[in-house]
Design a protein around this nucleic acid. Structure first.
Lengths: 201, 201
DNA sequence: TATGCAACTTACCACTTGGTAAGTTATCTC
DNA sequence: GAGATAACTTACCAAGTGGTAAGTTGCATA
């Protein structure tokens, strides 16, 4: 990997954490570049604008999610098992990369529609959402219910998976770090149970 | 009701919609006051600061959620039925008041921890979260699992309920308004099913 | 050694942000 | 009618925003 790609990856990593922790509007290029030890304009040199930087972060996230999804689809035969594996993998991923779930929620909430992302650009995470909904629709339980039903179910599963990791630090302040640690340990099993119950007849 | 209270309610309503649609950081006092037809300083006169205005909005939301929760608890005997009724009521409420679910997610994500809300102040929605978790813990399935498990389950149910309404407009742009309308119609039934499957043994 | 180019930096810029100070107007009570 | 108080307004302000322009540095290749 060239050193240019290395630096870009480092920039993206720091930018991703800032966007995840404070949202798009709450993140300033000055903050990111200060943490990187470069000037704001050095950051702009690589990505051109704040919006393009955000899109690059979401593009990376999109790839990560797609990789999790396809890996889960390779590991199992039935769509039901594939979904279960994917969401558990997503929960694990969100636990390891604290930023992921907050980014997912943020990208969905202020993805298109608001002025953050240009309307002609492809909506962020769309490449990931479409096969996910298709996978829900491939299950025996939901294949006759139509696309809107599959979309509704997919969003419920995604919400159940992503909210907890995204608000983890907030909950730790509310209920104490010890209960939160225990809750986090059990979250994976609970999620597996939830997905199975929603996907099996 | 005095006219002062009436105007304050109108201010809160408009502010709530802005905070819900664009988040705390993305909302400016100038935008809110422009929509209200008053000056930014007229708005500050009532609430003192942006943070206090936000806290007032979240306080109102907290009351609304508590009312839904207690109403559900009055309507049924078993904690399982109470939970089912509450989450369906919350979904209906989120459909009527488009801002509610986005506010819930926002309040949880950037509630305490970040610099938005002063750390000594009580965390927003805490009065609502505690009885909700307690209600989960009162069910036969989860009462032996301990508080952390109940917290994990409560957040999953909340995420499953709130994500879809919060990202509704974004999804409408992605998949078209017609499928979204159908998905919205079925979301209540899906949610009822999900809560029941997670709460019953 | 010369050329070119990516990777920056310094210096700005126009604009918006939340917030303060002081003054004005209307309303309500005594 | 007098006085107080709530409900504003106009006029600012310092700080921070994303972004542009122009220059500098260092390295790779011809």
């Amino acid at each position: 990997m060239s050193s240019a790609q290395q630096t870009q990856k480092a920039l993206l990593r720091v930018a991703r954490d800032h966007f995840a922790a404070r949202g798009y509007q709450g993140t300033s290029l000055a903050q990111i570049s200060a943490e990187l030890g470069i000037t704001k304009q050095g950051l702009l040199h690589h990505f051109g604008s704040k919006e393009r930087l955000y899109r690059a972060v979401l593009g990376q996230l999109n790839q990560d999610l797609l990789q999790l999804l396809f890996a889960a689809m390779d590991e199992a035969e039935d769509p039901e098992d594939q979904l279960e594996r994917f969401f558990v993998a997503l929960a694990d991923f969100s636990q390891a990369e604290q930023s992921a779930s907050a980014l997912v929620i943020g990208a969905l909430i202020d993805g298109p529609g608001q002025a953050i992302i240009a309307q002609d650009a492809p909506p962020p995470l769309q490449d990931f959402l479409e096969p996910l909904v298709a996978l829900v629709q491939a299950t025996a339980r939901w294949q006759k219910a139509g696309f809107p039903a599959a979309l509704s179910i997919a969003m419920k599963l995604l919400g159940a998976t992503c909210l907890f990791p995204a608000v983890r630090s907030s909950l730790a302040l509310r209920f104490g770090p010890a209960p939160l640690g225990q809750a986090e340990q059990q979250a994976g099993a609970h999620l597996r149970d939830l997905v199975r119950r929603m996907v099996l007849e």
